[in-house]
């Protein structure tokens, strides 16, 4: 998909204006070319209305690297934005207006009882019982034992999902995570949401 940032920003402004002018939200449906675009527009308007500091962040271009190494020789890490941390870690801030852009390192040798979830935007009752619903560390170990992957990385990562302001995330947290991944010689990271 080739997205023009300026065109997208113009559309977002149009959608917000339409919503402001409309008696009911999004009754002027002819502005949308498909269902996915309308869903995105509704989400943008909702997020702008709910979160004062909300800004939509997109990449300027797709950072594409073909995955050439055989999977059974590759070192794999997990990163989840489901608000997962060790119980012994500092809790995440769950108030989206005070965005928590920090991350928690998750050990590859932890079990279900070692984890906690701080997140108010999804139902994590199942994940509270079995962290693998959002952070599949046990499945990753099994795939290693079965020879599907080469190795399990030493470090995995927990972040919040409701990060309405991404400045600190992009400038500080992601570079820190990238450094850890490079030091650990990780070949592939699987990202999972909440």
């Amino acid at each position: 998909m080739n997205i023009n940032r300026r065109e997208l920003e113009k559309k977002i402004k149009l959608w917000i204006d339409l919503e402001a002018q409309s008696d009911g939200p999004f009754e002027i449906v002819y502005e949308f070319i498909n269902d996915r675009e309308e869903k995105f527009a509704r989400w943008i308007v909702m997020a702008n209305a709910v979160h004062e500091k909300f800004q939509f962040s997109m990449n300027d271009e797709i950072a594409w690297h073909e995955f050439k190494k055989p999977l059974n020789e590759s070192r794999i890490s997990l990163l989840t934005t489901a608000g997962v941390r060790h119980k012994s870690d500092k809790p995440f801030i769950t108030d989206c207006e005070n965005t928590d852009s920090s991350h928690r390192m998750l050990s590859k040798n932890s079990s279900n009882k070692d984890f906690a979830i701080d997140h108010l935007h999804y139902d994590h009752r199942q994940a509270d019982q079995d962290i693998n619903c959002v952070f599949p560390i046990d499945a990753l170990h099994v795939l290693h034992q079965e020879g599907v992957i080469g190795s399990v990385a030493n470090h995995h990562f927990g972040l919040m999902g409701c990060i309405s302001n991404t400045d600190l995330l992009i400038k500080k947290t992601i570079p820190e995570i990238m450094n850890t991944l490079v030091e650990d010689s990780v070949d592939c990271v699987v990202l999972t949401p909440g």
Partner: peptide, 26 residues
């Protein structure tokens, strides 16, 4: 939402989904 890798304690399902994700990278 909250179950991107499947239902709790369905270990085989979780393994299949994670395995598929990794294979899709290729």
């Amino acid at each position: 939402l909250g179950n991107p890798i499947g239902e709790s304690f369905k270990k085989n399902d979780q393994k299949i989904i994670l395995s598929d994700l990794l294979k899709l990278c290729k």
